[in-house]
């Protein structure tokens, strides 16, 4: 079930667009945030509010790689391994996350605290390596700095 606030949020999004289908992508983001991933219930909730058949909602969302199509941990770490970050040691950081936090790329740690997504360039090449944790941005990463950052997320 979506919270009242989330329902209102989706309805407000709907009001900005001429058709319900145009509002589908941002509405799915809201549902994803509420459910943690795009579960069948998330699609059903969006479908009920926007009046778009749920199979269509799912069809549209699966086109996009950056929605969460599987259950995720409580916090999502998105680490860039594109050219600049790679040159400055992002791949070592991947190994670090694997060893220190049991986080495989695309996987979730056993506690369900973190999920790791390897992402493409986030435009922080000058301050690489960089990552997002949920919606927070971090740059100039080192192993030590990552430990410090992740300590803030429970």
């Amino acid at each position: 079930m979506l919270s009242e606030a989330a329902i209102k949020e989706i309805e407000a999004i709907r009001a900005k667009y001429p058709t319900a289908r145009a509002a589908l992508l941002p509405a799915i983001y809201v549902a994803q945030r509420e459910f943690g991933w795009l579960s069948p219930e998330a699609y059903e909730a969006v479908s009920d509010i926007l009046g778009i058949p749920k199979a269509i909602a799912r069809g549209v969302a699966t086109f996009y790689a950056m929605y969460r199509h599987r259950p995720m941990g409580r916090n999502v770490v998105q680490l860039c391994t594109n050219v600049s970050c790679m040159i400055l040691g992002a791949e070592k950081l991947v190994d670090f996350l694997k060893n220190r936090y049991s986080l495989e790329p695309g996987g979730t740690d056993p506690d369900g605290r973190f999920s790791l997504v390897i992402m493409e360039c986030i435009g922080a090449c000058g301050t690489a390596p960089a990552m997002l944790v949920n919606e927070d941005f971090y740059e100039n990463l080192t192993e030590k700095y990552i430990e410090e950052i992740l300590g803030k997320y429970k």
């Binding site: 058949p53 199979a55 699966t62």
Partner: peptide, 28 residues
């Protein structure tokens, strides 16, 4: 999909995924 959506009006199936991985699935 065009039959299900446009003529039958059931919209029970859709193209999922993208590119070479595209295929048709019902919601479940």
């Amino acid at each position: 999909v065009r039959m299900c959506e446009g003529v039958q009006g059931a919209s029970a199936i859709a193209v999922i995924n993208r590119g070479g991985h595209s295929h048709i699935e019902p919601f479940s």
